[in-house]
Design a protein around this nucleic acid. Structure first.
Lengths: 171, 171
DNA sequence: ACATAAAGTGAGTAATCACTTACAAAACTA
DNA sequence: TAGTTTTGTAAGTGATTACTCACTTTATGT
């Protein structure tokens, strides 16, 4: 792992656990065993470092959103969407915790990561003749956020909860 | 309004909009038109100020949770719980935004405000002979969080969404 | 009226903040 | 191998941070 990557992952871990604002560039440098100056050489600013983390994380996320977009069976789309939080690998949890944190304090990071998925879900519900496909898709997003919260924050077992939701859609 | 209250509400507004960490005690003092020292006279520390805000907010929250706890009809309990986010007055929105933000970056503030409501909901679902009352109650909490997010963050119209959820329970 | 306490101020404090700069080592290119 | 770019560091910078302290003003109780 290059020093640049090292900075990126150390910063991600710190931002996710203590928050962006209360993590100092000094601390990142110490923890990553690099000089503080190197952070600014590679990323320009603390904000630039955050951006790099987001960009990297979003691109990783596409790897488990893309397969759902490729599905044809609408019921399968809904099922896989609800199962999404459970299917996110543990190594990506830090990133998602950071993203959910930022969502509440930085409007600019209001996740557009799910935009395409919502459209796909709307289509799925429409083809299943649901009365209000847009709202139904929005509801699935609420399930995803709720399950993600359960997993990332309360570290609970979201398996039963996922199953309960799937049952409501007879999936 | 006393200067003490003035500090409390200005701090709430700033914490909610910019976040706790990136709001300085200096800024609070200026905005509230008091000396910075007064903040520490009254609240001891910045953290103490945050605690005072939380305590005050939680006590206000009881005013709209308590009526639900007093209900007898289980269906009514569920209905009113789902309608909870819509029924929170606009003046309390700042506090709830702050609380949701803290939830993601300060584990100590993992809201116990809803503990009694969850118990009540579990009872309600049990008396309605649902197979898994605990999980069903947890799901209602997810709806509440989702609707609150819609209202507090996206400032969307949660009315339709609330109705959709109510329909799912035939309420 | 007078003593005690509570409320309030303004100018400090050391520490920490994000960031810069001058310079050296390493890597790459010819 | 010589020249250039990239990667890296150590020691700073001024600004800002939460918090303190010596002091004055206002309120309160008898």
């Amino acid at each position: 792992m290059s020093k640049k990557e090292n900075i990126l992952f150390t910063a991600l871990a710190l931002f996710a656990s203590k928050g962006y604002d209360s993590t100092s560039t000094r601390q990142i440098a110490v923890e990553a065993s690099v000089s503080e100056g190197l952070i600014f050489r590679h990323f320009g600013s603390k904000e630039g470092l955050l951006n790099a983390i987001i960009v990297h994380g979003i691109s990783i996320s596409q790897s488990y959103i893309q397969p759902i977009l490729a599905l044809n069976n609408p019921k399968e789309v809904i099922k896989r969407s609800i199962q999404l939080p459970l299917s996110v690998p543990g190594e990506d949890h830090e990133f998602w915790k950071l993203l959910y944190t930022l969502k509440w304090q930085r409007s600019e990071y209001e996740e557009g990561a799910f935009d395409s998925l919502r459209q796909k879900l709307t289509h799925a519900f429409r083809s299943l003749a649901y009365q209000n496909p847009e709202l139904e898709a929005q509801l699935i997003e609420i399930y995803i956020d709720g399950l993600a919260t359960e997993i990332l924050l309360r570290k609970g077992d979201a398996q039963e909860l996922t199953q309960l939701i799937l049952n409501k859609y007879e999936l």
